[in-house]
Design a protein around this nucleic acid. Structure first.
Lengths: 101, 101
DNA sequence: CCAAATAGTAACCGTACGGTTACACTTTGT
DNA sequence: ACAAAGTGTAACCGTACGGTTACTATTTGG
């Protein structure tokens, strides 16, 4: 299922929880959170912290996949997009070391 | 890419951002958050709120998919998996229907 | 009817999330 | 050499997230 909003996520969590025959207390305990928090998350609370969300999904054996929609946006670089050298150079340009004076 | 931790998510966000040629300020503004927040998220902050995360992923044109790992109760023989009767029974057993007095 | 189980809600409270501002460090371009 | 761009970090502060506890529906079962 594609997740676009916190409400989507809450609905999916609730559906999975009930299919597994768990109540809110059981899931909250397994995920290391509180029942209050789970209630709010299942209702689509956008302020829920990602760490607790991930623990909850793991407790429900739900996997998350992220994917870039468009391969890459090359605005005006023409049509030659073979080796994507810019990305390679950019990644090599990452802050390598912390140099001390 | 499979997301298991907040660090995974932060790394993916950063990779996508740089591939799109955006700096932290541009992405933060587009996602409606602050650069400080984005720095922490890219470093794997588990306390980041899911609402801001979703806005950021949308700004990067990243889609999220969630999926239940096991259908419901791994039936060892996956040949013809009848109309998952267990789920039906479970849901009926839990909170079946709203019955009128 | 009453009791039990599950879920939604409210209050209070300590903590930390997120925004703002400022400064330090590195790389790049002039 | 310098300045600019990009990033990491620190401080302060208002707000709200999450935990706890309690109470309220709603349904089921005795």
């Amino acid at each position: 299922m594609r997740i676009r909003t916190a409400t989507d996520l809450g609905a999916f969590i609730r559906e999975r929880r009930t299919k597994l025959g768990m109540d809110q207390i059981a899931l909250a305990k397994k995920a290391g959170t509180s029942r209050k928090w789970l209630v709010e998350v299942e209702q689509g609370k956008p302020g829920a912290e990602i760490g607790l969300i991930l623990r909850t999904l793991k407790s429900l054996e739900i996997s998350i996949e992220v994917e870039a929609d468009s391969p890459v946006e090359t605005p005006s670089q023409g049509k030659a997009k073979a080796p994507d050298i810019n990305s390679v150079l950019d990644s090599l340009k990452k802050r390598p070391l912390k140099k001390q004076i």
